[in-house]
Amino acid sequence: MGLLCNFEFGTPRMDAIEAKNLRKSFGPVTAVDDVSITIPEGSIFGFLGPNGAGKTTTIRMMTGVLIPDAGTVQILGTDVNKDPLTAKLKLGVIPENGTVYSDLTAEQNILITAKFYGMDRASRESRTGEILARLGLMERRNDLVRTFSKGMRQRISVACAIVHSPPVLILDEPTVGLDVYSRRLVIETVRHMNREGSTILLTTHNIDEANALCSTISIINRGKIVATGSPEKLKKTFDTSRYVEVSFDRPVGHGLFSAPGITRAEPWGDKWRVYTDDPDRAVKHLASVAEREHLTIVSIATSNPTLEEAFVKLTAGA
């Protein structure tokens, strides 16, 4: 287990995951088309895209479950296809279409998974108890998974994936179809694992979740990565569609809004929408004309570009 916990200060940082030029076709369908991703240690990386974009296919190639047509994947410096056993020891995986054994109890599932990672009996047992408590499954630990709800099964799946405190945790759509409570526990666990030092890669088609959880996001569409960056940076890429919404105490005309930096203005209910690529400059202009014309500003607000806008633009036509 030594390799799992010696991230000493001063050692050069490696990339947790480095995928290069991954490619995979299923018959005529190119599911993943030349995808390269580098995920630095310690981050929570989100892989965002509509259904069928190629997220699961990419994840399956990264976790050694699917053999790529071309390209390589390294997990903390180990090639997944050349040395799968060593690479997989560093991974915890929650597959999209994968579940735990219904014929075993919650506890048996976690214990046998821990055996695959070579944990000794004492650490298997203490870690299993700790995780069962964290995931709210202590009372049900001796029940067969067969009797569990979807949310509880997914929590067991999470438990199995984190039992060996993996340096890299990969989750494919971990919260889809879960009840509110399970969903919260799963997200909390992801955050906790990241604080404890795990690098996280998760896929989702839920924009809010990616926004709330991830430090970096790649948007994938039709097998290709179309943008990568922090959620804030991705939003800013689409700043051209920002606007300032303003209303005055009496009606005004178009002329008020002709100024450099303002692309156009249109009436919007009892307000005006002033489109700009520089909200700061537009607001200052509006304040100064209001001063000059003795207008009172009743309300003023700037729109924040949303990740959703970025997403919709990037995946348009999907």
Binding site: T63, P84, K88, L89, L91, V93, P95, G98, T99, T113
Partner: peptide
């Protein structure tokens, strides 16, 4: 069928 296979091959096995 039970979808445990996908999870099994992502464990440290070949």
């Amino acid at each position: 069928r039970e979808k445990t296979y996908e999870r099994l091959i992502s464990l440290p096995v070949i």
